[in-house]
C-alpha cells in the first residue's frame, strides 16, 4: 500500500487531430513533496495535468489515483482525492469571494456542519491572503486577487477532501501567473506547507527561479515528452536551457539559477530581518 504512488501515469498519450500533445509519458507522484512541471509553451504540461485530473481522457495509456484507474472514480470521490486549480477560469456570475471559496467545499463537504465548513473556508482564505476581500464580487477583483481566491477555493476543497480521502493531491496549473512577486513566493510557500502534510503537490511553473527555490523534484517537458526529471540541482543546468528551452547558455543574463538574487528568496521562508 505504501508503495502505491498517489498518482501513477503510464504511457499516457493525448492527441488532437494527429498531433500528440502528450506523448507516452510515465510519471509517479508519491505522497508529500512538491513536483514542478517546467517546459516551453506547448510542451504538454497543462495537457498532462488535465489527464491526471481526469478532465480529458488519454488517447492511449492509463492514469491511476491511489491504485484506482481515474475513469473508475466517481466525480465526487475523485474530487476528494485531487484538487485542481486551473490556469484560467471565467466566472459566469457575480459570486462573492467567500461564496466562491465555499464552493470548493460544497460538494465533497456537504455532510459537514455549517460551523466546520466556515472554519475550513476561513482557514483557506487566510492562507491564500484573501481574508480582506470578504464580501467582494469575484468578478470585480484584479487578476491576481482572483487567482488567490481560486487558490483559497482549492485549499478549502483539499482540506474537505482530507475528511474522506487519506492520500490526496493538489494540482496547480500556473498558479502564480498573475501574482506579484511576494504573493508568488507566498503561494509557493503555502503549497510547500500543504506538501509537508503528506499531500502530493504538482505545479506547472514558468519561473525557473521559483521552481528552483521550492520544488523537491522538477519534471522538464518538451514536445509532449518528459526530457529531464530529478531534484532542482540535478535538472536545472545549462544543458536544460539548451535542450528543453532551446536557449544558448552563452547568452548572458540567462542562467537557470540566478536571475533573482538568493537574498530575495529568504524573506519568505525566514522571519523578516533587517536588510543588509
Amino acid at each position: 500500500m505504501t508503495d502505491t504512488p498517489t498518482l501513477r501515469i503510464r504511457g499516457a498519450t493525448f492527441a488532437i487531430a494527429g498531433r500528440r500533445l502528450v506523448d507516452a509519458v510515465d510519471l509517479d507522484v508519491h505522497p508529500g513533496g512538491l513536483t514542478v512541471l517546467v517546459g516551453p509553451n506547448g510542451a504538454g504540461k497543462t495537457s498532462l495535468l488535465k489527464l491526471a485530473a481526469g478532465e480529458i481522457r488519454p488517447t492511449a495509456g492509463r492514469v491511476w489515483w491511489n491504485g484506482v484507474e481515474v475513469g473508475a472514480l466517481a466525480p465526487g470521490r475523485l474530487a476528494a482525492i485531487r484538487t485542481v486549480m486551473s490556469q484560467s477560469t471565467e466566472i459566469g456570475f457575480s459570486f462573492r469571494v467567500e461564496e466562491t471559496v465555499d464552493l470548493g467545499v460544497a460538494r465533497i463537504g456537504r455532510r459537514l456542519s455549517p460551523a466546520r465548513r466556515g472554519a475550513i473556508v476561513a482557514e483557506a482564505m487566510i492562507r491564500a491572503d484573501v481574508g480582506h476581500l470578504l464580501g467582494r464580487d469575484v468578478r470585480s477583483l484584479s487578476g491576481g486577487e482572483r487567482q488567490r481566491v481560486l487558490f483559497a477555493k482549492a485549499l478549502a476543497q483539499l482540506e474537505a477532501g482530507g475528511l474522506v480521502a487519506e492520500r490526496r493531491a493538489l494540482l496547480l496549473d500556473e498558479p502564480v501567473a498573475s501574482l506579484d512577486l511576494s504573493h508568488q513566493i507566498g503561494l509557493m510557500e503555502a503549497a510547500r506547507a500543504v506538501s509537508a502534510t503528506g499531500v502530493a503537490v504538482v505545479a506547472v511553473l514558468h519561473d525557473l527561479n521559483l521552481a528552483a527555490a521550492h520544488a523537491d523534484r522538477i519534471v522538464a517537458m518538451a514536445g509532449g515528452r518528459i526530457r529531464r526529471i530529478g531534484t532542482p540541482d540535478e535538472v536545472l543546468d545549462d544543458d536544460l536551457l539548451d535542450e528543453v528551452f532551446a536557449l544558448s547558455p552563452r547568452r548572458p543574463a540567462i542562467s537557470a539559477r540566478a536571475v533573482v538574487p538568493q537574498t530575495w528568496r529568504v524573506r519568505a521562508t525566514a522571519r523578516p530581518s533587517p536588510a543588509p
Partner: peptide, 26 residues
C-alpha cells in the same frame, strides 16, 4: 480533525502566506 490539523500543520511549518500579508509578523 480537519481544520485543527491544518492549523497545527501551519504552526509547524513556520511561515506560509502570512509572511507576506500586511501584518508585521506571520
Amino acid at each position: 480533525m480537519g481544520s485543527a490539523r491544518l492549523a497545527d500543520d501551519v504552526a509547524g511549518v513556520d511561515a506560509g502566506v502570512g509572511a507576506v500579508t500586511d501584518g508585521p509578523d506571520g
